[in-house]
């Protein structure tokens, strides 16, 4: 056992234990660690966005005499108009700009990547294009799976008869999907705990051999 001599490792370890104390019940030590995290994060992000966004993208250009850069700065500052009731309507300008530019950039790209390509991947191809029987089975599963799930989301007709049966199978498929997702989530949460325990047992207490 080789206890760490790094004071920051001790700070991190003690704060981790404060957070873990919530597993027993809520307490002031947990609250302290939680508030410390919120405060430090706010300060960190503020400094980071100043040095990586605000300064190089606006201030540095204005200093070089490019006064056009004051326009986006002014547009951004209009977000604070919400605090002055008389001029609160001015907040619509930056929001309109962001919505317009954001949609223009995102919609074609998302359509191409998430709708067109995914539809293409769902469609069945000629049998000889699949490398194995398992690939054919997978393709059929995806094709019929998508159709059956879509029938569940078809609400213009009562789910009775054929539509009732297909939508019920659609729900089963959705449940299998949710189950797979939940299983992965359990693994993710256990992984996070492993990471912290590895830090406490290894980096802090020096009990682990790797």
């Amino acid at each position: 056992m080789h206890l760490s001599t790094d004071p920051w490792v001790w700070v991190a370890a003690i704060l981790s234990l404060f957070i873990f104390s919530f597993l027993y019940k809520d307490n002031p030590l947990y609250k302290f660690a939680e508030h410390l995290l919120v405060g430090i994060s706010a300060g960190y992000y503020l400094a980071l966005y100043w040095h990586n966004g605000m300064y190089p993208n606006i201030i540095a250009h204005v200093k070089d005499g490019n006064l056009w850069y004051l326009f986006p700065l002014f547009l951004g500052l209009l977000y604070f108009a919400i605090f002055v009731p008389k001029y609160a309507y001015l907040i619509r300008w930056p929001i309109a700009f962001l919505l317009g530019a954001g949609s223009g950039i995102a919609i074609p790209a998302t359509f191409q990547a998430s709708i067109y390509k995914q539809l293409e991947g769902t469609l069945l191809n000629p049998l000889n294009t699949y490398p194995s029987a398992l690939a054919v089975f997978n393709a059929l599963l995806i094709f019929f799976g998508v159709l059956l799930v879509l029938t569940y989301f078809f609400f213009s007709k009562e789910h009775k008869g054929v539509l009732g049966a297909t939508s019920r199978v659609g729900i089963w498929i959705l449940m299998i999907g949710f189950g797979a997702s939940f299983g992965y989530t359990v693994m993710a949460r256990v992984s996070l705990l492993i990471g912290r325990l590895h830090f406490l047992l290894g980096t802090w207490l020096g009990l682990l051999r790797f």
Binding site: Q118, E120, G121, I142, Y184, M187, A188, S191
Partner: peptide, 25 residues
């Protein structure tokens, strides 16, 4: 991460991802 893995499998099937590492596994 494991939480996101199930969301990203469709990108493998379409070839939009060359490969994927899901979670600690």
């Amino acid at each position: 991460t494991g939480v996101m893995a199930a969301d990203y499998y469709p990108y493998l099937q379409t070839g939009q991802f060359v490969g994927m590492l899901a979670g600690m596994k």
